[in-house]
C-alpha cells in the first residue's frame, strides 16, 4: 500500500484542561475532495489550525507524503505544499486583485532584495505575474485584476482567497468553511470551481459544519465529535451512519 498524501496520526491538542482534539487519525488520498465535518465544538477548526501550522499539537503527528509536517510554522507548512484559506473573506483588502495573487506566488518566486534594487529580477517578476494571472484566470477573476480586493463582491472575494492559495502551486488546499454565508447560487458556483480545482490535480481538504451542503461534493468524509474520530467513509456511508446522525441531532439540540 502506498503512503497517503496527507496523514493525521493520533493528533491531540489540549488548551489548558480542555482537550479539543483527542487522538484523531485519518488520511487524505491524492486527488480527493476530502470533507472534515462534525457538529459545533467537535474540534474541526482546531484540527484545521493544527494541519496548517497555526497551532502546534500537544502530541501526535501530521505527515505529508510520509514527511513530518507538525511542529512547523505556518509559512513552512505552506512551503511544503499545504496552503490554507481563511474563513469569511480574509484578503489583503487594500491591495489590488492582481497584487493579492502575486503574494500567492511568493513561494515559487521568492523575492530577493538585492536583485530587486538592481533590477535583475525582471524574469522572476514576469514569471510571478504569469502565474498570478493564471490563478486568477482559473477562477474567472482576470478581468478584475486591477480592482481593489476590498471592493470585490462577496463571492468574488471567496474565489480570490482560493486563487491566492492556488497561485502558490500547492499539493493540498485547506478550505475553512468555504460556504458560510453563501446563497445557493454562489454555493453551486463554488462547488464547480472546487471540482475543477481537484481535476487539475490539487487535493482539497475542507472543513464544514453543514453536512448536507457537502454530501454531493466530497469524495470522502471524516466525521468528528468531541475531538475524536466518529466515522469515515464515502458520503453514502456517512449519511447512513447512526453515530453520525445521533451526533448531529445531539449537537443541533444544543444549538437550537
Amino acid at each position: 500500500m502506498t503512503i497517503p498524501l496527507l496523514e493525521v496520526d493520533r493528533l491531540t491538542m489540549r488548551f489548558g484542561g480542555l482537550t479539543a482534539v483527542d487522538g484523531l487519525s485519518f488520511a487524505v488520498g491524492h486527488g480527493m475532495i476530502h470533507g472534515l465535518i462534525g457538529p459545533n465544538g467537535a474540534g474541526k477548526t482546531t484540527t484545521f489550525n493544527l494541519i496548517s501550522g497555526f497551532y502546534r499539537p500537544s502530541s501526535g503527528e501530521i505527515r505529508l507524503r510520509g514527511e513530518k509536517l507538525s511542529g512547523l510554522r505556518m509559512h513552512e507548512v505552506a512551503r511544503r505544499g499545504v496552503v490554507r484559506t481563511f474563513q469569511h473573506s480574509t484578503l489583503f483588502a487594500e491591495l489590488s486583485v492582481l497584487e493579492n495573487a502575486l503574494i500567492g506566488t511568493h513561494i515559487r518566486f521568492r523575492p530577493n532584495i538585492f536583485a530587486a534594487i538592481a533590477g535583475w529580477d525582471a524574469e522572476d517578476r514576469r514569471g510571478a505575474r504569469a502565474r498570478a494571472e493564471e490563478a486568477l484566470d482559473f477562477f474567472g477573476l482576470l478581468t478584475l485584476a486591477d480592482v481593489r480586493a476590498g471592493d470585490l463582491a462577496h463571492g468574488h472575494q471567496r474565489a480570490l482567497g482560493m486563487a491566492v492559495a492556488l497561485a502558490a502551486d500547492p499539493d493540498v488546499i485547506l478550505l475553512d468553511e468555504p460556504f458560510t454565508g453563501m446563497n445557493p447560487e454562489e454555493t453551486g458556483r463554488m462547488m464547480t470551481l472546487m471540482r475543477k480545482l481537484r481535476d487539475s490535480g490539487v487535493t482539497i481538504l475542507l472543513v464544514e459544519h453543514d453536512m448536507q451542503a457537502i454530501m454531493g461534493l466530497c469524495d470522502r468524509i471524516t466525521c468528528m465529535s468531541f475531538g475524536k474520530l466518529l466515522a469515515e467513509g464515502d458520503p453514502g456511508e456517512i449519511r447512513g451512519n447512526p453515530a453520525v446522525i445521533e451526533a448531529y441531532l445531539g449537537g443541533s439540540r444544543d444549538v437550537a
Binding site: V83, L95, I107, A165
Partner: peptide, 13 residues
C-alpha cells in the same frame, strides 16, 4: 494588512 494570510502563502512574516 494580513500577516496570517501572508504566512499562509508561505511568507515568513
Amino acid at each position: 494588512w494580513q500577516d496570517k494570510l501572508a504566512e499562509a502563502a508561505g511568507v515568513n512574516a
